[in-house]
Design a protein around this nucleic acid. Structure first.
Length: 436
DNA sequence: TCTGGGGTCCTAGGACCC
DNA sequence: TCTGGGGTCCTAGGACCC
């Protein structure tokens, strides 16, 4: 059997690159894409990164750079990004046998047993994505997914920050094809922060223990890792050593949880306002649930104040079990509101709330296994189908169920992402011209 | 004034039982 | 008037990811 080999293909600064496909004038400029409420930066161009703008930087702290540095900020347009993602993914799939779409801009591809010059093959795919979709991407290759991720990081940085790595590793980097000495020098040149699965907390602990580079981490004693940290970090270390612990998941699995949560544009205090928000979040979550043909057994509701304010803090969640599994909006909203009533405390300034559906199962389970009588739920089911159809066709919020509905501008939360008309509609004719 | 949203997995600790 | 020990289940919360 061929030894395992993985590629990770990742669009560079993905949301910014998507915007640039339709506005080439943004090339070379510092650009950020902002989150839902235009609250913070969720994507940055290389030029914006060079200005020192961090991931998640609050907009009110960086907006002054519009004047001083020509920073361009755009509201996120997720339908556009999803569309370009689909196109990119279908081209990238041609790299190997199986593909796992890991996020909107990243996919793993199984390269085990793929013959020929992998570097050349990867460069061809990369060029194709750039020419046909307009998105620049980088490709990392390694014997485990963790090493492929790391290779991708190296490919990106070798391109973006010349001198950080040998120039030959830019855009496409294959760690599996390196001799031992070169591999070790590259791992020694990479901070442990860059490893997939190693976040801020663990980095701080590792550094205290004298572990600074990826090479250090790859040489740490496995028993110690398990004892001082966890099986999760142990798995990561093994993967760094070249021992695959995480396989490719090619089937798209159903979600185990479905959430709808929002930060409010302004703080709210009244139970009525929170009830409005929670009702809408619950409806949205129920819609998503029906889209995957699922039913929930539990509904979690949470509210919290803003950790960034000096006010008294309050944060609580509650899980309300449903009498039986359902995807019915009415029942789910009722449960969410019951939860809210139980955890609501007057006198706090709430900044965020959300609804999460838990213990999901396929809708088919209930009918077949529990042998329930056909009842009101089945008629409700048809009503829900009609509701979803209308909202899909005429826009979200066209029909709300038993909602008293605040006027749009009175809402403390923003559903802008769903409500707005897309700025662009993408068609193949709009795509950049392919030069043969 | 203004700090995202949607996920996964793991662990610690409490309740309960024998 | 003593305060065991192990298993299991559940929940809250931590840590991580993009």
């Amino acid at each position: 059997m061929a030894s395992p080999l993985y590629a990770l293909v990742d669009g560079n600064n993905f949301y910014v690159s998507c915007e640039r496909v339709f506005r080439p004038g943004l090339n070379g400029q510092p650009v950020v894409v902002l989150s839902n409420n235009d609250g913070c930066a969720i994507a940055r161009s290389n030029e914006a990164k060079a200005l020192g703008i961090a991931m998640g930087a609050p907009w009110f702290k960086i907006r002054h750079m519009q004047e001083s540095h020509g920073l361009v900020a755009l509201s996120a347009n997720f339908p556009l990004y999803g569309d370009l993602s689909d196109r990119m993914m279908s081209l990238v799939a041609g790299l190997g046998h199986h593909q796992e779409i890991y996020s909107i801009d990243e996919s793993f591809v199984d390269l085990s047993g793929v013959r020929g010059d992998l570097l050349k093959r990867s460069r061809t795919i990369r060029e194709r994505v750039l020419q046909w979709v307009g998105i620049p991407c980088c490709i990392g290759i390694g014997p485990t997914k963790t090493l492929a991720k790391l290779a991708n990081h190296i490919a990106k940085n070798a391109e973006r920050k010349p001198g950080s790595y040998p120039a030959g590793l830019a855009q496409v980097c294959n760690l599996a094809a390196m001799d031992r000495a070169t591999l070790e020098s590259v791992l020694a040149a990479t901070a442990v922060d860059e490893v997939w699965g190693v976040g801020r907390q663990i980095v701080a602990q590792l550094k205290k223990g004298g572990i600074h580079t990826v090479l250090d981490l790859s040489r740490i004693d496995l028993g110690t890792v398990r004892q001082r940290w966890s099986v999760v970090l142990e798995r990561t270390v093994r993967e760094l050593q070249g021992q695959p612990c995480v396989g490719l998941e090619d089937a798209v699995s159903d979600k185990q949880q479905i959430a709808c949560t929002r930060s409010f544009g302004r703080v709210v205090s009244a139970l009525g306002d929170l009830s409005e928000a929670v009702s809408e979040f619950a409806s949205r979550a129920a819609e998503k649930l029906r889209r995957q043909d699922g039913q929930a057994c539990q509904v979690l509701t949470f509210v919290r104040t803003s950790p960034f304010r000096d006010d008294p803090q309050y944060s609580r969640s509650i899980v309300v079990p449903l009498r039986r599994p359902t995807s019915d909006t009415t029942r789910i909203v009722q449960a969410a509101l019951a939860g809210l009533q139980a955890i609501y405390k007057p006198g706090y300034l709430y900044a965020k709330a959300g609804v999460v559906l838990l213990e999901l199962q396929p809708a088919s389970v209930q009918q077949t296994e529990l042998g329930l009588e056909p009842d009101e739920d089945q008629n409700k089911g048809r009503l829900m189908d009609v509701l979803d159809g209308l909202n899909r066709r005429y826009g979200r919020g066209t029909v709300l169920l038993a909602s008293t509905g605040l006027a749009g501008d009175r809402r403390p939360w923003s559903m802008k992402q769903e409500l707005r008309t897309p700025q662009y509609t993408t068609r193949w004719e709009d795509m950049p011209v392919v030069h043969a």
